[in-house]
Design a binder for these strands. Structure first.
Lengths: 343, 343
DNA sequence: TTGAAAGCGCTACCAG
DNA sequence: CTGGTAGCGCTTTCAA
């Protein structure tokens, strides 16, 4: 079923059919009606591939996600997908299991004429530049490069980390352990910097730091290692993301046989769904995923509409969600729900 | 950068360039070398859109997922994505938030010449037929229709449910509650049928049944409702998926103040990652996601290679993973890890 | 408003 | 093995 078939059946020219299917094109009501009728009878659907070939735009955007096992990303992906499809864009999904294959994505970007990319993976500055050089706008989700003119939407990790540090120091914790993410993770670097920096400002003893990989198991292991390193004085563990914090909670309660937050307070980052589950009620810094994905989509769409638009780096504050894994300011377990939790 | 540019630079014909980039086409080593060199210098990438237009195949497959908040699906999606990209296929992602929009996907299927579809969403028989009628092979993930000639890969929900029923009845539970999924869910129907059927066979009193929506919160609510309905005799709750079972565990331990499995045993279905976390150690029937996704991909690729191939319905047994939320056969809490858990 | 015609970049079929 | 040539189905000038 091509536009020629429809044109023939409707007794109009092929270009007429094309125009009828192009929103905002000139076609008389009469023609429109006949074409639509014919198209309907024939079950005609415009061929998006052919359209892309002529127009140079595919109506597809690439979404690059590094790791769907970190439960923060399914939430992001889900939102992005819904928003893009609401805007008439298809989502081509790229999951970067092993950091490899970025250049193959580059090939696809030009090959499939992707209209844009939102990346929530750990791309290098050079890789991002490659996309840009190919004329493909990029919005970086939760990372950004000073020297690369790509737009980005970031949660303010430093600020969030400082919030957390402040709150925990004020609650009187003395001996901290910190579980960072992979060392090449921008997010981890920011959160680490913010947390340790603020702690230092407040005159708290420097925490023991171990690195994890953002997974539950690594948080579990890290908590045990911290306990070993820091000894019984350890009274607070902060993890660079919720997944690890959940693992840490379980390790402390289980393997270590200590209470949370009675003996050791624990906090994370992200505000993933499982962190709210009753078994955890994890204190965390929540990223406003909805606002962030919305911003990401808007920014990308804007750049697609006007490629000359200068890159924009938007930063959104995270919200401290004080729940049940951190002692209260009076030394007692914190209130069940922080005010921020209502959102 | 088009193949003409490369051809010109390499001093060969455009068709030559095309052949060099088509795997398994005839081109002398000399030509290949010169073309590749020229292409490299020019940063040429074949235009997949144009290729799709002529060949009629896009090298894209659609993956339809209903709900990424059910943590079973991110696992599936992650696997599918990795496997498809390993096979040189791009994944066009469709998330079906509200069951609507299936027909828009249909449009995309024909518009983007999708080579195939794997659907893990609740499509109707008619919708699946529509895809098939358009010449787009479909593999149904965890559902199938008797009267629609689509291939499918299913976990044997009935069998798995029977395993669970047997094990729990043998452990001496008397008063069961069952939390089903949405009534229009094939998976839920199968699991419900298997579970209730086996219980009846074993002469166990008919369980109280309430319906959930596969989410944590609904499992939480359902457990409380079951406790209200069934009274203090209630000693086992089985949920149609892990997410709800996790909610149920928390409800029983928290709101109801009973022990799991001391007072009430709880089990789920799927074998999602969080079900293994120390706070839960949920007894469940694990779906072999890796084998299932592998089968799904293979089947779809086979159909794409040979469209005349008859549909195939493959069924893979689930594995009972006895963990810590169900009483042991001696009435004591079950062994920490079932043998199946080693996998 | 409408129709004719020229491509978009590639594949595939042909003859050489 | 190689080069010419005819499209794939659509959008988009350009005249009418």
């Amino acid at each position: 079923m091509t536009s020629y078939d429809v044109a023939h059946r409707a007794g109009v020219s092929q270009s007429g059919v094309s125009r009828v299917f192009k929103p905002g094109a000139s076609a008389s009501a009469a023609m429109r009606a006949r074409v639509l009728a014919a198209a309907d009878e024939l079950g005609y659907r415009p061929n998006a591939i052919a359209r892309s070939l002529t127009t140079g735009r595919s109506n597809m955007v690439g979404v690059i996600i590094s790791d769907l096992t970190n439960l923060y990303y399914p939430e992001v992906l889900s939102e992005l997908s819904a928003r893009f499809s609401g805007r008439g864009k298809r989502v081509l999904l790229f999951t970067l299991a092993r950091e490899a294959g970025v250049d193959s994505i580059l090939g696809d970007v030009v090959g499939y004429q992707l209209d844009g990319i939102v990346s929530a993976a750990r791309l290098s500055a050079g890789q991002v530049s490659d996309f840009l050089d190919r004329g493909c706008p990029v919005v970086l989700y939760n990372r950004s490069f000073d020297d690369v003119p790509a737009s980005s939407i970031c949660c303010d990790h430093v600020h969030g980390a400082r919030l957390l540090a402040t709150r925990m120091a004020e609650a009187g914790h003395h001996r901290f352990g910190f579980v960072s993410g992979p060392t090449d993770s921008f997010v981890s670097q920011e959160r680490t910097r913010g947390f340790l920096g603020r702690l230092a400002e407040m005159g708290v003893a420097e925490p023991a730091v171990v690195a994890g990989d953002y997974g539950y198991a690594s948080g579990h292991a890290a908590a045990r290692e911290l306990a070993r390193e820091a000894g019984p004085a350890l009274d607070a563990i902060v993890c660079a993301n919720d997944m690890m914090a959940l693992g840490a909670v379980d390790a402390v309660r289980g393997s270590l046989g200590r209470r949370v937050p009675g003996d050791i307070s624990i906090a994370g980052f992200d505000g993933i769904d499982p962190a709210r589950w009753d078994s955890y009620r994890l204190t965390t810094v929540r990223q406003p995923v909805r606002r962030m994905t919305q911003a990401a989509v808007e920014m990308l769409l804007d750049h697609m509409a006007d490629p000359s638009r200068p890159p924009e780096r938007r930063m959104i504050p995270g919200e401290l969600a004080v729940r049940a894994t951190v002692r209260g300011l009076d030394g007692a377990p914190a209130a069940e729900l922080g005010a921020a939790d209502a959102a």
